[in-house]
Design a protein around this nucleic acid. Sequence first.
DNA 1: CGCCAGTTTGACCAAGATCAACGCAAGTGG
DNA 2: CCACTTGCGTTGATCTTGGTCAAACTGGCG
Lengths: 233, 233
Amino acid sequence: MFKQFDAGSTVNVSDWPQNTASPVARSGQLEALVALEQIGTRRSLSREEEIYAEGDRADGWYKVVSGTVRICKLMADGRRHIAEFLFAGECFGLDDHGERVFSAEAVGDVIVMRFPRLATQRLIEEKPELAGHMWNMTLRSLAHAQTRMLLLGRMTASERVASFLLELSERRDVRRNLDVPMSRNDIADYLGLTIETVCRVLSAFKKDGAITIPSPHRIDLCDRDMLEAAVEA
Amino acid sequence: MFKQFDAGSTVNVSDWPQNTASPVARSGQLEALVALEQIGTRRSLSREEEIYAEGDRADGWYKVVSGTVRICKLMADGRRHIAEFLFAGECFGLDDHGERVFSAEAVGDVIVMRFPRLATQRLIEEKPELAGHMWNMTLRSLAHAQTRMLLLGRMTASERVASFLLELSERRDVRRNLDVPMSRNDIADYLGLTIETVCRVLSAFKKDGAITIPSPHRIDLCDRDMLEAAVEA
DNA sequence: CGCCAGTTTGACCAAGATCAACGCAAGTGG
DNA sequence: CCACTTGCGTTGATCTTGGTCAAACTGGCG
């Protein structure tokens, strides 16, 4: 089932390259992380504002402080695809060299930290342990992307929506009273469906008693087992 | 359009963390890569043989020497999803910690190099520049995964197949006489379609004069422009 | 109160899935 | 050497899921 929804690209010291490292390397790692945090600058954005656009120079990466960010791509004929949603503590924009391949936008009001690429590179040269940390964040994104490829390639509409609700619940660490910051349209473009299908599936889940929908941006997971059964992967 | 199909996770010294590094760091990098190659062991597999299974301990990663490898996952009810095909020079199995989330199988006869996880970790501690190299390989996989999410989430059957043919052509560096090592079924599971749909789309392309199909595992791209137009992303 | 943006619901439609038959080599065993 | 099998691939007929189009609903907000 879907237990390994990555907890996002939060700072995490105990992983692949590090977890057998000597104590010395480990304390170096911690110090390096502090140094990393210090090269970041704060930036506030309001609802629907663009953080960067497709085609912009990719000269930095970001970490969400508060709010929700979406990473998306527009096709020539207007079809939209949302590659990822990012919540507080998660990082984005590490990928792509040179030009941005996707754009990043604020779903609601958002605060992010921006880490300039050059400063990051210099810091990595200075403290090579950091490369391992960056690598880990990328590995997490990759694991998440693979889970989503399975979802987009082989799951039915209800499986996708159930999956989405459970993912939200895991990532935001809420068991029942889920708040859903993004619009139905965003959800649809994230799941490779249409807004109507998303609505219909949600209504169906409601009728079956798996969820209730006090308001469009608030969903109660009454019966998680039912949702988990709907995923069935 | 789809020009940035990553050339795979081949060894590549000139990237993100390295490309502004001092000459000293660069030569260290090269030396480190040689050291890396030396911890690998050769392994031969025949058609349809499993390299590792879902659930196996993830205690190493691989590089394809010759042949084609597929990374796949089976859902409980038998639906199959192919996450990736790997050709000579490309790496896989770097992702997942602990247990394998996907399995890896030889499409035809295959030779791979296996790099044990522990030895790799030790080497990284010894030569921290290597972390940057590993990170780059992961970044490439991620870029590829993102391209595929767009394909699976938002493209039509013909767009997917056209995309696939062009991707094959780019990655194997062949402009016309494409050899297609995988079965129609593999292609379908890679593109999130059924085998019948793949066949039909290929037949349609043939009728339109975009391709010819001398044999099932050999496809001629007569009119690349037509295929590129069919993708239209 | 009426407008507006986002959501929900319904009726209909189509892309692609499913089911089924057929074709076509490459074995295989008599 | 030739029937027979077997595993793919291709094609056709029909069905289903989810998309499209359109209308109604809902909760702010001027």
